[in-house]
Write a protein that binds this DNA or RNA. Structure first.
Length: 377
DNA sequence: GTTATTTGACCTTC
DNA sequence: GAAGGTCAAATAAC
């Protein structure tokens, strides 16, 4: 059973919840910046522009919803002021964060479309002063995959944080490495409840959560819902990356046997446990419809609207699950122009206006451009 | 009432 | 002894 978002948010520490909202807003800012960077290239691509706006609106709407729900504006302001980047070098005209962002394959659905358009030569490659070229610099060398922005990247092996080794000699519990493991990183939902791990067509029951030494976020432990019924040994561990709130590291352990039973629910074959099947895994995770009954499921509408951004470095096989082994670089926050964000926060907190008004604040020049374009047409 | 989640305690491994 | 993994009672949602 899935608890309500408010219930879950209620259980969080206020500063943690605020931090999540903060990250959400920062991501929205980056989307807006990307769009701005490519306006020149996309003047003739209204559908892409529209999709980009949708993405941005959704992100900010989610942030606003969280802010309105149960969070303290004062805490938000404090977060902004305490941000380590506030004392960093002034922002360059070519935003380095954007390069980092794209370097790791972090693109939105709309940005994916933009890149495809550019790569296909439909949009001019010239850059604007805000660094639109970065879109190409970041990912042109890597072919885009996935029509919904779910970019599946080459998997990389990673060591587990602890490097446990020996197989268990006791029957009950073990950290044995001979269990089949598959670790991957997947994007977290950007809308709604961002705590939910991505749907993978299996139903999971959460049985534990643990703070992990050296990790910023706790690790959640899930096992197959049908563990008892079908003696299914499949488990998974879900943990946010330390430096990337919007990316989960998911480790699958053991194979599903529940689907083999004639009485078991009809589900696809277990995807994650063989090396070389990662693309299949992620494809299933990205395109399949969520299972409504799943304890970790995400409503289809949310999945369709969430940002399928970066995917996916994973390591599969026995013995080297990647908890804590991520080398991903922060997508947000470090190089963001925080005063701008603070202004946006001020607008959102003080105006009491709708999200559309917030968007007007973000895109005044765009509106002017579109209006001008409409007048021409 | 049933089922899922949370969370402190316990167990296992290193 | 520390840390990760799991159990199970308490709690909440439906």
């Amino acid at each position: 059973m899935v608890k309500s978002e408010t219930d879950k948010a209620k259980r969080k520490r206020p500063d943690q919840t605020m931090e999540e909202t903060f990250s959400l807003m920062l991501h929205g800012c980056k989307l807006a910046k990307d769009l701005e960077s490519n306006l020149g290239n996309l003047a003739n691509q209204p559908e892409i522009l529209s999709k980009s706006c949708d993405d941005i609106v959704k992100v900010f709407a989610a942030a606003k919803e969280r802010l309105n729900a149960d969070q303290d504006p004062a805490l938000f302001t404090q977060l902004l002021r305490q941000s380590p980047s506030s004392s960093q070098q002034p922002q360059q005209s070519t935003d380095p964060s954007l390069q980092e962002w794209l370097k790791y394959g972090v693109i939105t659905q709309a940005m994916d479309m933009i890149q495809q358009q550019i790569l296909a030569g439909k949009a001019p490659l010239e850059t604007n002063e805000m660094g639109g070229k970065n879109l190409l610099e970041g990912s042109a060398s890597a072919p885009l995959k996935g029509s919904v922005g779910g970019e599946i990247q080459a998997m990389e092996l990673s060591d587990s944080g602890r490097g446990s080794s020996s197989s268990s000699q006791r029957p009950r519990r073990s950290r044995k490495d001979d269990e089949e493991k598959c670790t991957m990183t997947v994007p977290a939902p950007q809308m709604g409840n961002t705590d939910l791990p991505p749907e993978d067509n299996f139903t999971w029951r959460k049985y534990g959560q643990k703070e992990i030494l050296g990790s910023r976020y706790p690790r959640a432990y899930y096992r197959c819902t049908h563990q008892k019924l079908y003696n299914c040994p499949a488990k998974k561990q879900v943990q946010r990356l330390d430096n990337d709130f919007y990316t989960f590291e998911v480790t699958y352990i053991g194979q599903h046997t529940c689907h083999m039973s004639s009485t078991a629910p009809s589900i696809p074959p277990p995807p994650p446990l063989e090396t070389g099947t990662q693309d299949q895994i992620m494809t299933q995770a990205m395109v399949s419809q969520p299972t409504p009954a799943s304890s970790s499921s995400v409503p289809l509408g949310r999945w369709l609207s969430m940002e399928f951004t970066s995917l996916a470095s994973a390591s599969c096989g026995s013995g080297s699950g990647g908890a804590g082994g991520s080398t991903a670089t922060a997508r947000y926050g470090r190089e963001v122009d925080y005063p701008v964000v603070a202004d946006m926060a001020d607008v959102m907190f003080n105006s009491g206006s709708s999200s559309s008004n917030s968007m007007e604040f973000i895109f005044p020049s765009m509106e002017d451009k579109w209006e001008a374009g409409d007048k021409k047409n």
